[in-house]
């Protein structure tokens, strides 16, 4: 009563139809709409700066962290992921090293270091730090650049995002944007 082709044929055709519908047409439709409505976001949220000579330059994606290590910049979280247990010995040693590094670039600062500056993120490319972590660095940046602390604070405030509806998510400072602004590029 039940031939094999009875199942094979619809199964194969169904698979082909679904591939065209859910793979090709769906993806193409979303890409088309995205490129028309949100071209900047759909292409990586690049920060493009118009330079003095009129040319445009891409400085990076506002969503992907860049490595900063010099004291005149706002410094972000450690790059890369660790996947270490937070209570393991490997982690303890690594965090200790990071704490010493922070003290070495800013010996005068005796404040406690915010946790996000000494732990790796999940993506390894977290573009944000907490407002406390930015606050921890303002005096150093102001000193290195010979500008007022208030000027640094104002820039940090400008590039801080608020939680959605005031409750969902955490306040966060975009490190790359603050640094481009400090360099007068943004």
């Amino acid at each position: 009563m039940m031939g094999k082709t009875n199942i094979l044929r619809p199964a194969f055709i169904c698979f082909c139809v679904m591939t065209v519908l859910c793979g090709i047409l769906y993806t193409a439709a979303i890409t088309g709409i995205a490129q028309i409505l949100f071209p900047k976001q759909a292409n990586g949220s690049m920060i493009t700066v118009t330079l003095k000579d009129g040319s445009k330059k891409e400085y990076g994606s506002e969503l992907i962290a860049q490595e900063f290590t010099k004291p005149e910049y706002l410094i972000g979280r450690p790059m890369g992921t660790s996947n270490l247990s937070p209570i393991g010995k490997e982690q303890k040693d690594l965090v200790q090293e990071r704490i010493e590094w922070w003290h070495s670039i800013d010996p005068e600062n005796t404040a406690k270091i915010p946790m996000d500056l000494i732990t790796a993120s999940g993506s390894g490319a977290d573009p944000h730090i907490s407002p406390e972590a930015a606050q921890y660095q303002t005096a150093r940046i102001a000193r290195e650049r010979n500008i007022s602390e208030d000027a640094v604070k104002a820039l940090i405030e400008k590039y801080t995002t608020e939680p959605f509806l005031g409750i969902w998510g955490e306040r966060a400072v975009n490190v790359l944007k603050v640094n481009l602004a400090l360099d007068g590029l943004l």
């Binding site: 979280r77 992921t81 660790s82 996947n83 270490l84 937070p86 982690q91 965090v95 704490i99 406690k112 270091i113 915010p114 946790m115 996000d116 000494i118 732990t119 790796a120 993120s121 999940g122 993506s123 977290d126 944000h128 730090i129 907490s130 406390e132 955490e170 966060a172």
Partner: peptide, 12 residues
């Protein structure tokens, strides 16, 4: 370091 929640492997 300042006492806080576990931030290892988490986004800010």
């Amino acid at each position: 370091a300042a006492a806080s929640a576990n931030m290892e492997g988490k986004e800010v």
